[in-house]
Design a binder for these strands. Structure first.
Lengths: 212, 212
DNA sequence: TAGATTGTTAATCGATTAACAATC
DNA sequence: TAGATTGTTAATCGATTAACAATC
């Protein structure tokens, strides 16, 4: 069942399920039907059942789903019970913010280091971690078993850094640089293109105002 | 032609077209065919032509598209030649980073103010702008013709703040808080759920490693 | 004019929703 | 057992791709 390819549309919905189920769990709710979840989440009950069934049966006919069980299963599917060691590349505003922000830690994403080439930043402490030179990256990645790199560098250098990261065996890149990265198959890239997101918002505002 | 509803799938691709066309323009390339663009962007030529034709004909048969013209038309569609006044709500790590980051300015998104309720932050200068109390928000929004609010506050207070923003006439919310906001129809919400994005990355890494 | 390439219609594919039999 | 609700198949819808006539 792990082996049929799950569409990215489904994967994209899993974190949201996970979030709502976590909240239900915290409220002490033990069971929920697809219809009740549908009402809360504003998606069809049918879609909920289809989505869950991509991974095998999590529910019980005539009863519904056990919230805590479902929550944990989705967490497992998302790989949240494994730890991922990550480094941040680019210690500018965004890189620093993400380093400090990190309540990703409790989801198993461990902040291990931050790198930059700007000499003014070298040695600066960010969340008890000194900014290191990018020359040290290769050895650091290998010695610390880093599997995720967060790219918060300007687009000009992103391709080159991504290439280097691929070569030294990183598994995933969380890319905030505003370029499409070309990496070998097997290295996962997740893009966060903030300005694209803001443009979409602008479009929808204008569209609504001009009689959309 | 402005009036048929364009799907969000299409809208979501516009910023990427805009980016590639901007690069082509900077390289001095004057014309391009859908096939050439297809090769560069890794989407089908058919999709490119369909997408553009949602907005009327930008090309010329037998010739292709004029890069600069197309670039500007897409910019217009996205509303990038109007200015949008924005405020940031929440002067934590992320809020400060976005305030400083702002090379959104050149796309017409003007940073006008930053708000927080944390007394330690009040009055602190961020990019030459003093952090203001959220009590001042209502008057500020009205006096400064603010149409976009960037929410970088904890999820606990996000719903309440979103409600207040709706009431005082904001047009769009760029939401970094990890909740689904319920706002009246007519107020646009664009979500950036960073932890969801990171979870997707984790899924794809694990999936690949476990023989996906 | 001939060649190229768009704009647009038709075909296909995939994702969502509806329906219902299986079963707790 | 009867009622409820899943798991799953079938129907629908929408988005993508292919094909080609229009036309520069």
């Amino acid at each position: 069942m792990e082996n049929k390819e799950i569409s990215q549309a489904v994967i994209g919905r899993l974190p949201r399920y996970f979030r709502f189920l976590g909240e239900l769990k915290d409220e002490g709710i033990e069971r929920i039907s697809s219809q009740e979840l549908s009402d809360i989440m504003q998606v069809t009950a049918s879609q909920i059942r289809q989505d869950f069934n991509n991974f095998g049966g999590f529910g019980q006919q005539g009863y519904g789903y056990k919230v805590e069980y479902l929550y944990e299963e989705i967490g497992k599917i998302l790989g949240l019970y494994k730890t991922h060691n990550l480094i941040i590349i680019g210690a500018g505003n965004l890189g620093q913010a993400l380093a400090n922000y990190m309540n990703f830690e409790r989801r198993g994403f461990l902040f291990k280091g931050i790198f930059d080439n700007n000499p003014h930043l070298l040695g600066k402490k960010i969340r008890n971690m000194e900014v290191k030179s990018m020359d040290e990256m290769e050895i650091f990645v290998k010695e610390n078993d880093i599997d995720i790199a967060v790219l918060t560098i300007p687009k000009a250098s992103a391709a080159e850094v991504a290439k280097k990261l691929s070569d030294i065996g990183i598994r995933g890149i969380w890319n905030f640089a505003h370029v499409d990265l070309n990496v070998p198959r097997g290295i996962q890239v997740e893009n966060v293109h903030l300005s694209d997101s803001l443009m979409k918002l602008a479009y929808n505002i204008n569209q609504f105002e001009n009689g959309g």
